[in-house]
Nucleic acid binder design. Structure first.
Lengths: 224, 224
DNA sequence: CGATTTCCTTGATATTTATCAAGAACTTCA
DNA sequence: TGAAGTTCTTGATAAATATCAAGGAAATCG
């Protein structure tokens, strides 16, 4: 548990609590282990909670009635997740699913919100965090509106290689996974991947992707 | 000025201030008249301010390097607008433009933020407001990802007719305006409009649109 | 290891959407 | 009123993207 205190003191928003408050928070936390593929909450259901992700990976997904899905965002270890329900009593806008086995600490949201509101540093950090989320969503909108599929894929790949020392990465996402992240279809993504290879940007094989010309990819983003 | 106090007491977020605080706010406010087409702030520029729209209409627009534009949202009279910059010191994510002559009251953001943080009701209202914005953005994303152009246009039209007693409205938006609101092109919108007419949903002429079958349009939304 | 399943790849084809072009209808304004 | 500028409308065409289908490669699992 001391471990958790330490981690919280380095996490956005949580870091702004006083040490004492963090101690209290640690006491109130419930540790949960989420199996890969399990659902934390469903789109539309209320979920007035707060989460700290100790390890693993979550994704927020919106689905259409006829089965299409789109991955709005992913949440990595070391970050907090505040349920929308907490702030406006409405259902969650997306389904949250564990991409891999994930360990989280969960709070009853109103308990922690109580703390947060009393501490203006925390409040400001929360507002700041929320603002950044809005920016992210607007960026998604920008990409959907102005970038063709190739541009969106280029961006996805570049992001993949951020803080990656080696120019080669394992293909840990299936084509379908990628499709659901950039609103396209697996076949199209496959083709564009090899198109990128033909352009000399990447080397692609079944298991790996090797970055050959980052600048080339980045140019695709600019011109949309 | 008493007028302003009264209006603020009925506006989201502002209503949560104490009467005394609102008095103070009223003193700090600067009244501005924005001519139709004038720009309040540019995408990318810092803008750490707060706005109350007394009359008129603003729109938030994102633009691509090659001239495309997309209207992210519009802001009507009676609502407040809080600059993103205020919360994270970054540039604004969109350009804010007056759609028509608009009268606003503007504050130096940090002054008002000071108040807001000290009053937990206001803080909660702000977080709530911010949460709703995120929901709106996600809805936009949903529509861009899952609805074809016809579906997005149908939604735009239905929204147009919300709180409209008459089934006929003036076409106050040009085709280009609409195009920039649903990420399409004027020609395509024109065609779909007449398509809707052929399907019996609307009657269209150069100056007006008459709603004939609301349910028909709404069905388009469901199935995407 | 063999069987089954999932995933990748590619060709052929269909669908959706955008673009270009040109004329008609309307507005504005001198 | 008439000239200039917008906006609308429609046809023809092009581009982007999705879908369908099928074979092959890899992974999984009993």
């Amino acid at each position: 548990m001391d471990d958790l205190i330490k981690k919280l003191s380095q996490a956005e928003v949580f870091e702004k609590f006083t040490h004492r408050e963090r101690e209290e928070l640690t006491r109130l936390a419930t540790r949960r282990v989420l199996k890969k593929g399990s659902i934390l909450c469903w789109q539309g259901d209320p979920w007035p909670h707060v989460l700290y992700i100790e390890s693993g990976l979550l994704k927020a997904v919106i689905g259409s009635p006829d089965g299409g899905i789109y991955v709005v965002s992913t949440w990595e270890d070391g970050v907090g997740f505040w349920g929308h329900t907490l702030f406006d009593d409405d259902g969650m806008p997306s389904t949250i699913e564990a991409v891999e086995d994930t360990i989280v600490y969960q709070w009853q949201g109103n308990e922690i919100l109580e703390f947060a509101i009393r501490n203006s540093d925390v409040t400001l950090a929360l507002l700041r965090r929320w603002t950044r989320l809005i920016r992210k969503r607007k960026e998604s909108i920008y990409n959907l509106v102005f970038s063709p599929v190739a541009g969106r894929l280029a961006k996805l790949i570049i992001d993949k290689f951020i803080d990656e020392k080696s120019p080669t990465v394992q293909r840990d996402l299936t084509l379908e996974d990628m499709a659901s992240m950039i609103a396209s279809s697996p076949e199209v993504i496959c083709r564009i991947l090899y198109q990128f290879q033909d352009s000399g940007f990447l080397h692609v094989d079944r298991a790996t992707i090797t970055l050959r010309d980052r600048q080339g990819l980045e140019n695709l983003l600019q011109q949309g």
